[in-house]
Simulated assay, not measured.
Amino acid sequence: MSNSVSKRPLLKPFSLLLLFLSSFLLLRLFLSSSATAKATATATASVFTSSVSETVPPPPLVRIRRTFRSYDDYVKLQLNKTLDSRLRRVWATRDWDRKVRVFTRFFSDLAAEGLLSNSSAALCIGARLGQEVAALRGLGVSGAVGMDLAPAPPLVVRGDFHRQPFPDASFDFEFSNVFDHALYPDRFAAEVERTLRPGGFAVLHVAVHRRGDKYSANDLLGGVDGLLALFNHSRLVRSRKVDAFGLDTEVVIQKLKH
């Protein structure tokens, strides 16, 4: 009896020690797990934040160079070049034959590809005095006509490429080398498609690797893809590098038949 009584005090401190050690180990394990979870959450948030901050909107395909107080101010700027008496004198004299020859070569190549024929109703957009119209008529395309803000009879009629003065599906063929002068490139493209007949062709000379002059209203940042993105009802036939009075790329598109 005395022996059993003497052993009980020894068991109680030992049990308390075991309980203390167990509690200590559980606490350490809990704190370690919490720290790991917090570090993982912080790392995940950091990666997510980094990916969001690095996501930037795509660059514009066509950049408009400047704003105008009104559309009339834009038209006046364009007419400053078209109606410049010195330039018109150059275009009508020493520049005339050279440009007609170059345009004749371009249009002859297009005719050889079957994109243009003598029976084509053809429109030259932004034709100024009409050298490209003269080239087409010289090749036998008698239905060729030019359009510009300032008319130049008998080759060029008055018209704005943002709202062409022609009915829907008027032309089999349209040519322009003034896309960079469009203040509203999407309207320019929409009007080309509106006035082209289904299956008709449009040929554009544009500046992809060069900047336009001070009268240019836009820069084509997306290259040929940036141009094609504006034409919702057409397909690309081909594009090629050219040397065309400061423009470097020729793009041929065809309006879809359906």
Rank of each mutant, 00 (worst) to 15 (best):
R194M: 05
L228R: 06
A217Q: 15
S176I: 12
F166G: 10
A144M: 08
H209R: 14
V145M: 12
A229Q: 10
P153N: 04
H181N: 10
P165R: 12
L221E: 15
A169S: 14
A152C: 13
V157R: 07
F161S: 03
L227H: 02
N218D: 00
D148T: 09
R163K: 15
D225I: 04
A229L: 01
P165N: 11
G222R: 06
D219F: 08
S176T: 14
F166I: 13
F171H: 05
A217M: 13
F175A: 04
A150I: 02
D172P: 03
T195Q: 09
A202Q: 00
Y184S: 10
F175S: 04
F175G: 03
E191P: 02
P151T: 07
A169G: 04
N232I: 11
M147D: 08
V156C: 05
V157I: 09
S170L: 08
N177V: 00
G200Y: 03
A202E: 01
R211Y: 10
E191K: 05
V145R: 11
S176V: 12
V178C: 14
F161D: 02
V206A: 06
Y184L: 14
A150T: 13
L149E: 02
G212S: 06
R163N: 14
P153W: 03
E193S: 11
V208F: 03
F166C: 11
L149I: 08
F175W: 15
S142L: 12
L220R: 05
N177G: 15
H205Y: 09
A152R: 13
K214M: 11
G223E: 09
R158V: 06
N177D: 15
K214H: 11
A229T: 07
R158H: 11
L220W: 06
F188A: 06
L204D: 01
P151E: 00
H162E: 05
V145S: 04
D160I: 09
G159D: 07
L221V: 12
P151F: 03
E174P: 01
G222P: 01
V178A: 12
P154V: 08
D225L: 09
V203D: 01
D219M: 06
H209F: 14
G199Y: 11
E174K: 03
V192S: 09
K214F: 09
A150S: 13
A189W: 02
F179S: 08
A182W: 08
G159C: 04
D168W: 01
A217V: 05
R158E: 15
E174M: 14
D213Q: 06
R158N: 08
D180K: 08
Y184F: 15
F166P: 07
